[in-house]
């Protein structure tokens, strides 16, 4: 049975392995150079405290490959589900070859077990290799990325570490299960894609923020967590807003950011603006006063009026804990679907 499964699978296995090999070789060749440039740049910017500018420049220069490799890792599990999972059983049902193989001296359960085991393992290996190689390669970029693309950000988190392995296993078994249910390849592929995309969308929206209770804290205002300052019309009120970042915890995944006034009352949510009684014609917030450190003095002035940022966030230190928990959740989903497909094969697929 192992021989037959391998014989049927070897074409796509070899192709996938070749693509992954090219990818890892390219990453292995360019990775050390990227890391050394990062180290050099960091050494250069630390004395004169211009590292923020260095990070921006460094990330900008490598944004395209960064997005490209992240996309590969995100797409791999979906492709596994579509092209390995969905057709696995439907192809046999459509060609009628299940009738041939089910009458060899091998029970149907064993037939499915070998197929699921062997190809599922290959899918997990591919996703694991791909995920870890990209994680290693993009480490300098992850450290200098803007908050929206930091390691904990929803899109990037799923393209790093071991989570892709869980996604791939889930997508594969999802494809097989859908295939067993609908029995036709193309509809099975379409449904697999839709369901997998929905799960991948729901996970960071609904589940991942609650994997561990988020940290809640109040921060002073600074250019890290402030979105901007705006004057409404000529001489109108001055309005400020916060953004999804917290000072002192770079790389955190900020779930909410509210602006509080001096009495601790919430006056604006994330991205919303609220008026503050400061002057822009004179004093620290006037354009003439803006020195080399931008609006720092202005933020100090607003801080002194008692305004604060109240944020909930998942700190970067939880990255690996979250990776393990999320992989575990997908592993459980995978096991559930596996059990269901065996049950359906025995009960109903006849």
């Amino acid at each position: 049975m192992i021989w037959l499964t391998w014989r049927q699978f070897r074409g796509s296995a070899v192709m996938t392995a070749a693509v992954l090999l090219v990818l890892t070789v390219v990453l292995a060749l360019t990775g050390p150079d990227l890391a050394s440039r990062y180290t050099a740049g960091l050494a250069g910017c630390t004395p004169d405290d211009t590292c923020d500018q260095f990070f921006d420049r460094f990330f900008d220069e490598h944004q395209l490959p960064f997005v490209a490799v992240s996309f590969v890792v995100l797409a791999l599990p979906a492709l596994v589900g579509l092209f390995w999972g969905a057709p696995l059983i439907t192809r046999e049902l459509e060609a009628g070859t299940h009738l041939l193989v089910w009458n060899q001296s091998v029970t149907r359960g064993r037939w499915l077990a070998v197929k699921l085991g062997l190809i599922g393992l290959a899918a997990m290996t591919a996703a694991c290799v791909c995920g870890l190689a990209v994680t290693w390669w993009s480490d300098p970029l992850d450290k200098s990325a803007v908050p929206d693309l930091a390691l904990m950000a929803p899109l990037v988190f799923g393209a790093r570490g071991i989570a892709p392995m869980g996604y791939a296993a889930f997508a594969f078994v999802l494809g097989v299960t859908v295939g067993i249910l609908v029995r036709r390849t193309l509809p099975a592929m379409a449904i697999t894609l839709v369901v997998f995309a929905a799960v991948q969308f729901a996970m960071p929206q609904l589940v991942r923020p609650h994997l561990m209770p988020p940290v809640t804290a109040t921060f002073e205002l600074s250019q890290v967590n402030m979105g901007g300052i705006r004057v409404e019309g000529q001489g109108g009120p001055v309005r400020i807003s916060t953004r999804l970042a917290v000072p002192g915890h770079a790389g955190s995944w900020v779930l909410s950011s509210d602006l509080l006034d001096s009495s601790g009352r919430r006056i604006a949510g994330g991205g919303e603006e609220a008026p503050v009684p400061v002057s822009v014609t004179s004093g620290p917030c006037s354009p003439q006063e803006a020195g080399p450190h931008g609006l720092d003095a202005c933020w100090l002035e607003i801080n002194s009026l008692g305004y604060r940022q109240h944020a909930t966030y998942q700190p970067l230190e939880r990255f690996w804990a979250f990776q393990w928990i999320e992989t575990g959740i997908y592993a459980l989903l995978t096991l559930g679907l596996t059990w269901f497909s065996f049950w359906w094969l025995r009960r109903r697929l006849s």
Binding site: T97, L100, N103, T107
Partner: peptide
């Protein structure tokens, strides 16, 4: 089809003789 041993005792050639 209950056990591999039972399957081994029965040969089955399906309609249209499906092959890979």
């Amino acid at each position: 089809g209950s056990t591999p041993a039972q399957l081994a005792r029965v040969g089955f050639v399906a309609q249209d003789t499906p092959l890979y």
